[in-house]
Structure formats: C-alpha cells, structure tokens
C-alpha cells in the first residue's frame, strides 16, 4: 500500500474571482482548473497546477456564512490545510485516531475530485488535514 502523498495545499480566500489574477502572477501556475461549487463542502474551489515538482494549490471560497471555512475567512483567510492522498480512507482515519487526531468531518464524496471520498481531521499539532482517497484503479 502506498504511503500518503501530499496532493495539495488549501488556501482560503474571500473571492476566487477577485483574487485569481493576483495568484496567477504570484505563483505562475502551469494550468488552472475550472471552479467547482461543492454544496456538501460548502465551498467554491479552484486548483492551480504549479510547475513540477510542486503540488497543487487549492483556492477555497466559502459559499455563504454557514460554510465550514466561513469563520476562517472572516479572520482573514490564508493557509488552511494540507491534503494527502491515501489508498484506504477508513484505514487512514483509524490510524490517525490512534495518534489522537480528531475526526472533524466523516468521509463524503467531493465534486472537485470526481466523487472520490474525502475526510477532515485535526492532528494534535493543530494541523488541519484533508484526506483524499485514491481512485480504485489509480496507480
């Protein structure tokens, strides 16, 4: 089974539309994904593919005041989480619970990842981590 691999870094902004030009200048992405509106996650997201060997940068905009990232955005936004890809989401959650990490959001499908499941945890080091399950046929 492959080790967890860093997939992207999440950064919360108040508006993707208003900040994307600045981000293009700041990090020179190779490509930019379409925007995804994920009602389940309560956020609009977009991915910037950075030049290799860097990982992706995810810009996250809260969809309304009830969004899980709304409070973070109200405090100014910024670096929010690391996302790791894992083979088996349930197994990873169990492993992290043994390390006293707190499960914040149970596994759910995510539109931005083609319906692949994600879960959110916070480690004892106060690091917010998103786990993304690899596609079953993904090597």
């Amino acid at each position: 089974m492959a080790e967890p691999a860093l997939h992207h870094v999440g950064y919360v902004v108040s508006s993707i539309a208003l900040s994307i030009d600045g981000w293009r200048s700041a990090v020179s992405p190779v490509s930019v994904s379409p925007a995804f509106e994920d009602i389940i996650q309560g956020a609009r997201v977009i991915f910037l593919d950075l030049p290799a060997p860097a990982v992706k940068l995810e810009l996250i905009e809260p969809l309304g005041p009830q969004s899980p990232v709304a409070a973070f955005e109200r405090k100014g936004g910024g670096l929010h989480h690391l996302c790791f890809e894992v083979d088996d989401l349930d197994q990873q959650i169990s492993k992290m619970k043994a390390f006293k990490a707190m499960l914040i959001r149970h596994p759910q499908p995510a539109i931005a990842f083609g319906g692949r499941r994600i879960a959110w945890m916070r480690t004892r080091e106060k690091l917010l981590v998103e786990y993304l399950e690899r596609a079953r046929n993904q090597v």
């Binding site: 619970k97 006293k100 707190m102 499960l103 914040i104 959001r105 149970h106």
Partner: peptide, 8 residues
C-alpha cells in the same frame, strides 16, 4: 478527558 473526540 483523554477521549477520542468525533467532531460530528
């Protein structure tokens, strides 16, 4: 309290 918290 030494308990594993499930946020939900």
């Amino acid at each position: 309290f030494g308990i594993g918290i499930d946020f939900e």
